Amino acid sequence: MQVPIINRSRHELPSYQTAHAAGMDVRANLEEAVTLKPLQRALIPTGLFLEIPVGYEAQVRPRSGLAYKHGIGLVNSPGTIDADYRGELKVLLVNLSADEFVVQDGERIAQLVVARHETVEWQAVEELTETGRGAGGYGSTGTK
């Protein structure tokens, strides 16, 4: 699949780090480093502008290494970039650790996964089909 992209950053395009990776790493495009204090969030620019095909979305997800090593995640995870959005891709990072974290220019801050999606047309009904699970949720499976 080919996706049109404008790169106004000083960095390479998002890329897969291994042959079978689902997500491409996205880099911060900063004039100066951004310090995230504990529980602080910041919208980090990437300098990238995407033209996602209709019927697809780009999902912005946390990088597992940043989450594990530094407690850095995304506030809205996964974030969705819709096919009709043409603004800059920005990543909403949050520091969930007890320590400050410094985001450097060029640092890999998120993953980008492009995925197909369906468009739903709701069908209003009075009843839903029965299942073995029924209305059980929030930890109800596997218990009796």
Score class of each variant (00 low, 15 high):
Arg116Tyr: 14
Ser9Gln: 02
Ser77Gln: 00
Arg61Glu: 01
Pro53Thr: 10
Ile5Gln: 06
Ile52Gly: 03
Leu39Glu: 11
Tyr68Phe: 05
Gln17Tyr: 03
Gly137Ile: 11
Pro4Ser: 11
Glu107His: 10
Gly23Ala: 08
Leu48Gln: 02
Thr18Trp: 10
His70Asn: 07
Arg27Trp: 02
Leu36Gln: 08
Pro78Tyr: 01
Val54Gln: 14
Ser77Lys: 05
Asn7Thr: 02
Ala33Val: 02
Asp82Cys: 00
Gly134Thr: 04
Glu100Gly: 06
Val26Trp: 09
Glu32Met: 03
Lys37Met: 03
Ser9Leu: 01
Arg8Asn: 14
Pro14Thr: 09
Lys144Arg: 15
Ala110Glu: 11
Ser97Leu: 10
Ile44Ser: 10
Ser9Pro: 06
Leu96Asp: 14
Phe101Arg: 12
Leu43Gly: 12
Ala22Glu: 01
Leu50Pro: 09
Met24Ala: 14
Pro45Lys: 02
Glu32Ile: 02
Ser15Arg: 15
Gln2Gly: 14
Asp84Glu: 04
Arg41Ser: 12
Ala124Leu: 13
Thr35Asn: 07
Val60Leu: 00
Gln104Leu: 01
Asp84Phe: 03
Arg133Gln: 07
Tyr56Gln: 12
Arg133Ala: 10
Gly65Met: 08
Trp122Glu: 09
Gln123Ser: 09
Ile52Ala: 00
Val60Lys: 07
Arg41Phe: 10
Val54Lys: 15
Glu130Ile: 04
Ala124Glu: 14
Arg27Asn: 08
Glu127His: 09
Leu50Lys: 01
Leu96Val: 11
Ser15Gln: 11
Gly73Ser: 15
Phe49Tyr: 12
Pro14Ser: 04
